[in-house]
Amino acid sequence: MQALLETRDLHVAFALEQSRAPVVRGVDFSIGRGEIVGLVGESGSGKSVTCMAAMGLLDEHAHLSGEVRWDGKPLSVQDDVCMSRLRGRELAMIFQDPMSALNPVQTIGKQLFEAIRLHSADRPGRRELAARAIALLRDVGVPAPEQRLKAYPHQLSGGLCQRVVIAMMLAGNPRLLIADEPTTALDVTVQAQIIELLRTIRDSRGMSIILVTHDLGVVAQTCDRVLVMYCGRVVESGPVATVFDSPRHPYTQGLLASLPRLDSQDRSLKPIPGLVPQPHQIGDGCAFAPRCPNAAGGCYSDSPPPQYGEQDQLFSCFYPISVQSSRATR
């Protein structure tokens, strides 16, 4: 399967007064057609910056290196003219807070019309625009779409606003959607609805989706594949079932063990000790070594290369957890 979006050895560093803070440090990943890939990690792991880089949304303070490929061809993400031709039509992005993605002083209808007009080759008239907008709102499950066109964002709930944002995104019919924490600001019952909606869109339109989130549960229920990021690197990746069933990297296992679960009664939480290091504190070795129970001398000086486990599982660790013991502790 040819990848739709691919990054090779992607590095992003932000300029500080004296030095540079490396935020993304060599990320290789790819997403195929119709695939939902989860990008998980704690704050500061570089997951959002990786996506912003692929969308060409980083400003001049960011130093990029490495390669981004779109549909098999190199993509010049720093070329604004080229990227604005692709954005919305080929790849689109939605964010955590739907309220700030919408214009507070314009009606939902006006904003939807703008998106539709921007992405249609013909010049639709007012009636045609309204018909298409209503169809889009219906697609994303907004009740009574005819009336919503006249509503302002503050009159809608957070969940409805996120649906409107998704409808605007659908107007361009992109092939790849990057959703950055799309459900974090929403309540659990509404979160379940939005996750369901994203899966429906993937199934009906064959859209590829990159889901950026800190919530492992959301990934487990939504994604086909998962990439776990820590301090600007992908430490483990693979099919969701494999990675969550038998994590090989100690960080992935640590994350899973620190989640309380409804189905276990007396299990005490095992938090990962210590703190996520700041970008300037990361040395040459494995960034997780100071918090890792398996770390030995080599971990502090050398950075572990990725290696394959079972079923396309990829992990970067000198002392990975064996499959047997990993399954046993889950």
């Binding site: 409805l160 379940a192 487990a220 969550f244 989640l259 409804l262």
Partner: peptide, 22 residues
């Protein structure tokens, strides 16, 4: 509410109920 909690375990102990509306 209980069924909407995203689980990392493959088999969720409860069948998923997705509520309509907000």
């Amino acid at each position: 509410l209980v069924s909407a909690i995203p689980h990392t375990a493959q088999a969720s102990p409860h069948a998923r109920i997705v509520l309509t509306g907000e």
